[in-house]
C-alpha cells in the first residue's frame, strides 16, 4: 500500500513538475479564504477587503504585494516550469526551480516597490485629493480591459511558457536559469501589470482577485486563442466598481 502511494506521488511529481508552485499558491489562497470567512463571520460582511493601503508599514505592504503575486502569478508559470524542468538534469531540477522563482519574483518585487512608492507619492500630493470625486477603481479596471487585447500583449502571452534551453551544469547554467526567471518575470509584468495596477487601485478585494486569477489562468493556460476573456472580466469589474462608487450600499 505504502509503495503504491509512494509511486502515485512520484508519478504525480513527474507529470506535474510545477506541483510546488501550485501548492504554494493554493496555501496562500487558503489563507485568503480563511481571512474572507473570518471577516465575514466577524462583521457579517460580504467582502473581505484586504486593503493594502491600511496595512502598517512599507515592509508589510511589500509582503502583502508579494503574497498576491505568488497567489495570482505563480500558477501562470506552470508551462515554463514544466519546460525548464524537462530541459535540465534531474539532479539540478530543484535548484533550477528555486533559481527560476528567485529571478521571477525579483522582477515583481521591483515592480511592486516602484508601484507602492508611486502610490505613496500620489497619495501625499495635495492635488490628488480631487481624484476622490472620480470612480478611480472603475476607471482602472476599464483601462485594464482596454489594454487586455492589445497586440503587444497577445505576443507576450504567446511567449509565456517558452524558454531558451539553459546550459547543462555549473555557474553558467545557474545564471541561464536565473535569466529565464528574470525574463519570464519581465514578460509577466508586461502582460499582467495593467491588471495588477487596477487591482491595486481598487484595494485588493479577495473576491476580485479570485475572479481575475481565474480569467488570467484560463487565458494563459487553457485556451490562448480565446481572446476577450480578460478584457470582458475587467469590464464587468469596472461596471461593478462604478455601481459601488455611485451606490455605496450596493457592495454590502
Amino acid at each position: 500500500m505504502a509503495t503504491l502511494v509512494f509511486k502515485k506521488v512520484s508519478d504525480f511529481r513527474v507529470a506535474h513538475p510545477h506541483w510546488f508552485v501550485l501548492c504554494l499558491a493554493a496555501l496562500i489562497w487558503m489563507y485568503y479564504l480563511s481571512t474572507l470567512i473570518g471577516t465575514s463571520t466577524a462583521h457579517h460582511h460580504h467582502h473581505a477587503h484586504h486593503d493594502m493601503h491600511a496595512q502598517a508599514g512599507f515592509a508589510s505592504m511589500t509582503w502583502q504585494w508579494m503574497l498576491m503575486v505568488f497567489a495570482m502569478m505563480l500558477p501562470m508559470t506552470s508551462g515554463t516550469i514544466r519546460n525548464l524542468v524537462n530541459s535540465v538534469p534531474i539532479y539540478r531540477q530543484q535548484l533550477s526551480l528555486a533559481l527560476f522563482i528567485v529571478g521571477y519574483s525579483s522582477v515583481w518585487l521591483v515592480f511592486g516597490v516602484a508601484l507602492l512608492l508611486a502610490t505613496h507619492m500620489i497619495q501625499t500630493a495635495s492635488w490628488t485629493a480631487q481624484l476622490h470625486v472620480l470612480p478611480m477603481a472603475a476607471l482602472g479596471y476599464f483601462a485594464a480591459g482596454m489594454l487586455s487585447d492589445a497586440a503587444f500583449r497577445m505576443r507576450l502571452l504567446n511567449a509565456c511558457g517558452s524558454i531558451w534551453s539553459p546550459r547543462l551544469r555549473g555557474f553558467k547554467a545557474d545564471l541561464d536559469v536565473l535569466t529565464i526567471g528574470l525574463k519570464e518575470g519581465v514578460k509577466c509584468v508586461k502582460t499582467c501589470a495593467h491588471v495588477m495596477i487596477a487591482m491595486h487601485i481598487a484595494g485588493h478585494d479577495i473576491v476580485e482577485m479570485g475572479i481575475l486569477t481565474a480569467a488570467l489562468f484560463y487565458e494563459a493556460t487553457l485556451y490562448r486563442n480565446k481572446k476577450h476573456v480578460l478584457r470582458n472580466t475587467c469590464y464587468v469589474l469596472a461596471a461593478y466598481q462604478l455601481l459601488v462608487f455611485y451606490l455605496p450600499h450596493f457592495g454590502h
Binding site: D11, F12, V14, A15, N86, V88, P89, I90, R167, L168
Partner: peptide, 14 residues
C-alpha cells in the same frame, strides 16, 4: 503513459 516515462538530460552542447 504520461508521467511514468522519465527522461534525464545527461548531456548538452555548450
Amino acid at each position: 503513459l504520461r508521467g511514468t516515462f522519465v527522461l534525464d538530460t545527461i548531456a548538452a552542447s555548450i
